[in-house]
Design a protein around this nucleic acid. Sequence first.
DNA 1: AAAAAAC
Length: 543
Amino acid sequence: MEAFQLLSRGGARFDKQRFKSDVQLFNKGKISGGPSQTAEKMAEGDLPPELDFFKYVKGGTVKRKAENGSKQEEGDGNLAKRRKLDGDKGEDTGSEEEDVMVPAPPRHRVSTKGSNVPNHVDSFQELKDRYGLSSHLQTNLTKNGYTHPTGIQSYGIPILLESRDLAAISPTGTGKTLAYVLPILQSLGAPSSSSKSNAGSGVRALILAPTRELAHQIHNECLRMAEGRKWRIVLFSKATAATLADKNARDKVDIVISTPLRLVTSLQAGNLALNNVRHLVLDEADRMLDAEFLSQIQEVVAACSHPQLRKAVFSATLPAGAEKIAMEMLQDPIRVVVGLKDTPLPLIAQSLTYVSDEASKLPTLLTYFSQPYNPPVLVFVSSQPRASSLAEELVLNNIPNVDCLHAGMTKKEREDAVSRMRKGESWIMVSTEVMARGMDFKGVREVINFDFPTTVQSYIHRIGRTGRAGREGKAVTFFTNEDAPFLKTIANVLLQSGSPVADWILKLPKPSKMKRKAMGKVKRGDFVNEARRIGRGDAIKKR
DNA sequence: AAAAAAC
């Protein structure tokens, strides 16, 4: 309620004149569709993002430790299957963009590290030749439109098929789910329910994800790929957990997909045994290994007592701390990195928009939505109440088809919101970090960070909801004076992935210095003044 | 560094 009032007040206090120049200035790098994007960025004096990124991944500016057993190759990346954008949504976007073939994205460099790394494959056919990929899986691949393996698929799948532990780092929207689902299905053999199965009784594969929505999405992907076979693939929930309390039912299950706490609850109640699990996958691994989830994960890992247990972790980001924990958990692991670690796809045109203060955010957003945009748009905020109140505020301002999603909503409300999104009924989805990871909405072409993300990882995952499977995307991030301490860090991410950043932001002092300043007695206005002094906007001309 | 998410 408080947040609601705050936002409303903000509306009344908005001074268009005062902020107009800032907003225009920092929107300069925004895309206006397909081909013109490159031109605009060229005008800023930079290389086009593709080239810039390419140069970077070629190792030009990056310092890389030469380590033993490490090799780097050009992966085909294979987002390369370019096609027209789906463009079945957003009838008011009306531009030639829909009909234009965008240039092929950069091929991602793939680097692997570990002992006896299996060769990658260049096609799904090769998986059949080398590993006898079952014909029904091949059929389902074709049926679901998978024609060529992406980078992570062509490297990761052979590794998993050869029963090795794997740590996979690959950008958002590059097909990580299939990379672990396919090997699991291939190795299952006969369903547990069948008399032919001699693989012991009980769950043989376990996939963990941080949110219900993501678990649900993974479940769907499994079902699609398993079509035609009788495996029991269970999305763990209160309801399914109850049915599995019966050991006979439980023994017939082949794959379980769950969130950690749900699983631990059943484990502790003695309603679930994991001693037959051969494949354990942690999706969004860094999220799963951070403080709140870690003990739950450890409990699950401990319960997976089968000697043939193989583990794999997947994520788009893996900070050093999480990577260390992951590597210690794995046995003789192979590490695969596609592209540059902690760098978003260059396909996403990113920009930073200065909004002065909290109160100016809403008006800026309303202005944004009063101009043409490509629905559906995902808007991220920092808390549940802010999500509800912002959604409410947009509705009050007659913005059509606004939706909201956060973990404070009931299971059904959440499911409905996701399904509206999937059906294209939501034009604007206001959400918390729940939606930041893993969710694959192919239509999303714009992400707005209404509240500034608190970590680079959060930023990368949030904007990774767009630009998926080789499509273009756009990401706008609002920042206020209060966000100054973290601004430069995020700005470097933009820069690294080929999006233009205003000079003055790059000239900001080191984040640590800014942070100390922000924590001290320094008035917020100081940042603005300093920014002006350094050369942002018209103000400098007065000097 | 801190919130959100998991039940």
